[in-house]
Simulated scan of single mutants.
Amino acid sequence: MQISFTGKTALVTGAGSGIGESIATDLARAGARVVVADIDFAKAEVVAERIVKDGGQAQPGTGDVADPAAVEALVAEAVAMGGGLDLLVNNAGIGGPLMPLGEYPLDGWRRVMGVNLDGVFYGMRYAIPEMLKRGKGAIVNMASILGSVGYANAGAYVATKHALLGLTKTAALEYAAKGIRVNAVGPAFIETPLLANLPADVKQALAASHPIGRIGRPEEVSALTLFLLSDQASFINGSYHLVDGGYCAQ
């Protein structure tokens, strides 16, 4: 199955590393013009430069997705790059503190909510009007296995990912008849910078928690994301797709 995004413009947040980097790279390889957005501009710049060096079309963008003005500016950058916006991947996210709810720091709670939930809302809030001008669009919101199950000491993260699924379904219902599809992807533990510094025994334990016996790879999440963004997935809307090595089947 050949997926092509030739002539389309995409915005990917959190694209300076990990899953977002893989998605931005694969979109560009499939012909899309990509705004590689990350709170760390240096990382976004490196990814965008590598895409261009490989023959793709990309430019870096930066901003904190918890800031609505920053997200609005990123959408405007994508529109300026391609004359409109066709694809959005709300991938930026943070883990936040790992503490029981009775001890959870209030500033940590607000920060996780701001990035993981508010940031997704802002992305759709500013991207959807531009997609409506095209008469068509596709959005993927990056959830997690923790959008469907709990995880001790990660209350803020779990809450945002559950809420993200409700937001995804609501947006899908509101805009399906207007040509815009909205879906969510739920990765399990993936080999990203977030896991890179974990002790070896902790990583082994995480790998063992997946029936498939290993941690996932960014490109495995990207492959599903690109399919959901493509016209081949034209009848898939408002749904949640796991990339979890069987984690949630347990």
Rank of each mutant, 00 (worst) to 15 (best):
Q2C: 00
I3Y: 03
F5Q: 04
T6C: 00
T6W: 00
T6S: 15
K8C: 01
T9A: 05
V12C: 01
V12E: 12
G16S: 03
I19C: 02
A24F: 01
L27G: 03
L27M: 03
L27Q: 02
A28T: 04
A28R: 02
R29T: 11
R29G: 07
A30V: 03
G31A: 09
G31P: 08
G31W: 01
V34W: 02
A37S: 11
I39S: 06
D40H: 06
A44K: 03
V46P: 00
E49V: 00
R50Y: 03
K53I: 08
G55C: 11
G55S: 08
G55K: 06
G55N: 07
A58Q: 13
A58Y: 11
Q59W: 00
P60R: 04
P60H: 09
P60M: 07
T62P: 00
G63W: 05
G63Y: 04
D64C: 10
D64R: 04
P68W: 01
A69T: 14
A70I: 02
V71R: 01
V71S: 11
V71C: 12
E72Q: 15
V75C: 12
E77S: 15
A78P: 02
V79C: 04
A80Y: 05
M81T: 00
G82P: 01
G84T: 04
L85T: 05
A92I: 07
G95Y: 11
L98I: 05
L101H: 12
Y104G: 14
L106V: 14
D107G: 10
W109Q: 07
R110V: 11
R111S: 09
G114Y: 06
G114K: 07
L117W: 07
D118G: 04
V120T: 15
Y122C: 04
M124V: 12
Y126P: 06
A127L: 13
A127S: 15
E130N: 03
E130D: 06
L132Q: 09
K133M: 04
G137D: 02
S144V: 10
G150E: 01
N153S: 09
N153I: 00
Y157M: 02
V158E: 03
V158W: 08
A159R: 02
T160N: 06
T160C: 12
T160D: 10
H162G: 09
L164F: 02
G166T: 10
L167G: 09
L167S: 05
A171S: 06
A171G: 08
A172S: 15
A176K: 11
R181K: 13
V182K: 03
N183G: 13
N183R: 11
A184Y: 12
A184T: 10
V185R: 11
P187L: 06
F189L: 12
I190F: 02
E191G: 07
A196K: 13
N197E: 13
A200P: 01
D201V: 14
Q204H: 07
L206D: 07
L206F: 15
A207Y: 10
H210I: 09
P211S: 11
P211C: 10
I212N: 08
I212S: 13
G213H: 14
G216W: 03
V221A: 09
T225Q: 06
L228T: 01
L229T: 02
D231N: 13
F235I: 12
G238L: 12
G238K: 13
S239D: 15
L242P: 02
C248R: 13
C248P: 01
A249K: 15
A249F: 11
Q250G: 12
